[in-house]
Amino acid sequence: MNIFRLAGDMTHLLSILVLLLKIYATKSCSGISRKTQELYAIVFVARYLDLFTDFISVYNTFMKVVFIASSLAIVWCMRFHPMVRRSYDRELDTFRHYFLVGASFALALILHEKFTVQEIFWAFSIYLEAVAILPQLVLLQRSGNVDNLTGQYIFFLGAYRAFYILNWIYRYLTEPHFTRWIACVSGVVQTALYADFFYYYFISWKNNSKLKLPA
């Protein structure tokens, strides 16, 4: 464990807590893409299949349980909570996210570390996580305005993967046989997807203006 990875995991946890706070406090999920949340739930379930077979550390197991439980809770809220589901931007959240699931799985069948069920689902979860934010970014482009909590949610989500890139550089420099191309390349692609959002977020923060995304 290194400081970059810990910072990454903490900002990832923070992004989920910000989202839970927004949904719980405002009883609204306007501006949040349910499709992105569903993709994240698939990512965590597919990636943590080893939850009961490989014990790495209490921290590792605890965080896996938190990520799976929180992502499923968010999807459940957005689908079944009477107050929250009413505020879902159904007509804006129209990204065909099943294509992302199919493409990621197809890629995982081709590119993986080992041809085992667990490794293929792990690679699938890595690829899917890289593109899972797309429905959310498309929804924000359509809705134009971004409320503070949603903006912070996406900012922390992008920062988490950026910290992981620093973690991979650090591990590459300090651990002799550390090679993790699938996660590295996919993580760089994922962070790049946030680049334009980060740009507009920084501009709005600098001008102290409301975050507006160009339509």
Partner: peptide, 10 residues
């Protein structure tokens, strides 16, 4: 050991 350490990241 290599196998288990492999997915030590979240």
């Amino acid at each position: 050991l290599e196998e288990i350490l492999y997915h030590d990241e979240l």
